[in-house]
């Protein structure tokens, strides 16, 4: 049964076409995605989901089926990690942790939300998520604080070292960048 003539072909569940890496990564973190019974408590608890496209239940479903589109979509980045779902899951699954695992996996593959990527780039460049611009320097001056705080910003060598190790993101991939 070929569906190739349709613009959006029907998904075929075929052996070996599942993204086992997703399932394995979750399992390694002690999260058994198969135990999810799709009750929707997570979605109903989700504060972010009321305002964004995030449907936690669907994220869990796609992860359970090894559907890699879950990593490509921006949904997982909409989670605020408030841990409401984690707290309320009747099967006692660590839902929020699972989202973090999925984010790590997505990041490793280069799927990072562009705003998050920018934050990391600024971190690598300045050592601060919030840049120390002229306005902030002025405020610091008025408060009698040194112009540059005693953080990474003050130690450019350390900053460069960290930029090389910690803040190295996988190259951009996917359409959303």
């Amino acid at each position: 049964m070929s569906s190739s003539s349709f613009p959006n072909p029907v998904r075929v569940l075929r052996r070996g076409e599942r993204d086992e890496e997703i399932i394995k990564a979750l399992k390694n973190e002690g999260f058994d995605i198969n135990a999810c019974m799709q009750c929707g408590t997570c979605t109903a608890s989700c504060l972010s989901g009321r305002w964004t496209a995030l449907t936690v239940r669907k994220v869990m479903r796609k992860a359970a089926l090894g559907d890699s589109s879950v990593l490509e979509s921006s949904d997982i980045w909409m989670c605020t990690t408030c841990y409401n779902c984690y707290d309320r899951c009747p099967r006692d699954l660590k839902v929020t942790d699972a989202i973090i695992v999925l984010r790590n996996l997505a990041s490793a593959r280069g799927f990072i939300h562009k705003n998050h990527r920018k934050v990391v780039q600024i971190l690598a460049k300045t050592g601060h998520a919030v840049p120390i611009n002229d306005k902030i320097q002025q405020v610091r001056k008025e408060l009698g604080l040194p112009k540059i705080p005693p953080t990474l910003a003050k130690y450019p060598e350390e900053r460069e070292l960290l930029a090389k190790t910690l803040f190295q993101l996988a190259p951009e991939e996917g359409d959303e960048q």
Binding site: V10, R11, V12, R61, L65
Partner: peptide, 17 residues
Amino acid sequence: LTVFVEDTFTGEPVEIE
């Protein structure tokens, strides 16, 4: 054999071989 079913959780029609 091909089984035609909707995964009603994602709302997608799927085929299972």
